[in-house]
Design a protein around this nucleic acid. Structure first.
Lengths: 235, 235
DNA sequence: ACAGGACGTCAGGAAAAGCCTTACAAATCG
DNA sequence: CGATTTGTAAGGCTTTTCCTGACGTCCTGT
């Protein structure tokens, strides 16, 4: 909206906030870069080659903000946020998600993200989110925020039915990927851990949820994902 | 790449192919519209307000091609693509997907789409896909294509091959029981046949539906049962 | 009428996935 | 500080799935 008039000489360029975009979807990332670059006080750079390249880029030229994607097939993205947060604790991270969901939002925030929004939000909101997070504020969509707060507000009551309350992080990863139709082996690859480890999680999930067969586990996981997607659609 | 040079007079504008974009993700759809609009012989229009609005737009101003998204909503429930195909059988539809997956591709094609590609493909591929589909060709990514080729033999006309149309009685029994959460062994008992026989059916189902893993089979079966239940409830 | 194909049924052996047990370091909790 | 949870994983055994055949029964078309 208003910009200009802050740097009278060439130094304005150096005051631009640098934003690094890490997103596997070209259409989305290109548009986002455009939107950012046409703001006079922001400048965007895209990393298209994956997470390692992103790390490299951050090391060589630290950005003020990283905007990254969190999509269904790659829950490992949460690990990315966490990794970022561990290596550069002060780095601001905004998560764009193709998988809008309060549980994911909460987990992204726990992992160190400073904002979370759905790709279904209008461009203007995306830009608003970028600015807010740059200003040091936390950014969440309203509905998501409410849901997250509601979840945080509920102490360890007695509503034990929801898998996400009783499962550990990694177990939830596995559960969700199982429900999305991935095999144990694929999950292992996606999470970058051994297949044997995934088997351990499956066993623990089954124990925690009181399931007897692998089949029941799969069925429950799939229904859970279904339900989540339905909620997402209706709201 | 090359455009221009085809319309020497003002009539070029009227020859522009009209493309309607239906996608809930603003970033992606805006970028796509840009890419299309900067081609001299193509013009894009965005529908942001949902499927009904899209139907309306198609009715009032028929496009040459509809590019739409396939996200979570369409994994179950009857698809937008199918509805489009029923109402305008000749309408070209290209599906952009956030979930690169052969099963989804398969379903999209069966529902009447003429192309399917992942949002992870580079912008240039997206544009290439648009052009190919406009030219009457079928467009698939290579990996997806290989997986789907098996059944491309089925003409695009009025296939409508839901599982119940292509599976034999016993195969459908097994499919449904699988989707209801029964194991191979349980199904065998339930149908009073040998477990080995059930295995045979599973194999045949997988072949007929072009599934590669037992996991995919299970996921499809479960989704199918879900969908059936939903339809029963809502209708 | 008879050949070809889809259907229903099953088996043997190889390959893969899953289950049970054990392990251990780090984090967290009480 | 000790106990529990979490994240990671291996070894060995059991079950399931996959691949390859097989065989009789219906239809269907020419």
């Amino acid at each position: 909206m208003n910009q200009k008039g802050k740097g009278k000489s060439g130094c304005a360029k150096q005051q631009r906030k640098r934003i690094l975009i890490v997103d596997p979807q070209p259409l989305a990332r290109e548009r986002l870069a455009q939107l950012i670059n046409r703001e006079a006080d922001l400048t965007a750079r895209i990393v298209a080659e994956g997470r390692e390249a992103a790390m490299e880029a951050i090391k060589t030229e630290p950005p003020d903000l990283v905007v990254t994607e969190l999509s269904a097939q790659d829950l490992h993205g949460r690990g990315f946020v966490q990794e970022l947060h561990e290596r550069w604790p002060g780095l601001l991270v905004l998560v764009l998600s193709g998988f809008p969901d309060a549980v994911c939002a909460e987990r992204a925030l726990r992992a160190g993200a400073r904002g979370y929004l759905s790709k279904q939000e209008p461009s203007s909101s995306v830009l608003a989110a970028v600015r807010n997070v740059l200003n040091g504020e936390l950014w969440l969509e309203h509905k998501t925020a409410e849901q997250v707060l509601a979840r945080l507000a509920i102490p360890v009551g007695d509503s034990e039915a929801a898998p996400e309350r009783s499962l550990a992080e990694r177990e939830l990863d596995v559960f969700q990927l199982l429900g999305s139709g991935f095999s144990t082996r694929e999950i292992a690859e996606s999470l970058r851990i051994g297949a044997k480890t995934v088997e351990t999680y499956r066993a623990r999930i089954k124990e925690k949820l009181g399931l007897r067969s692998s089949n029941e586990l799969l069925r429950l996981a799939i229904s859970w994902v279904h339900r989540k997607l339905e909620l997402e659609v209706t709201e």
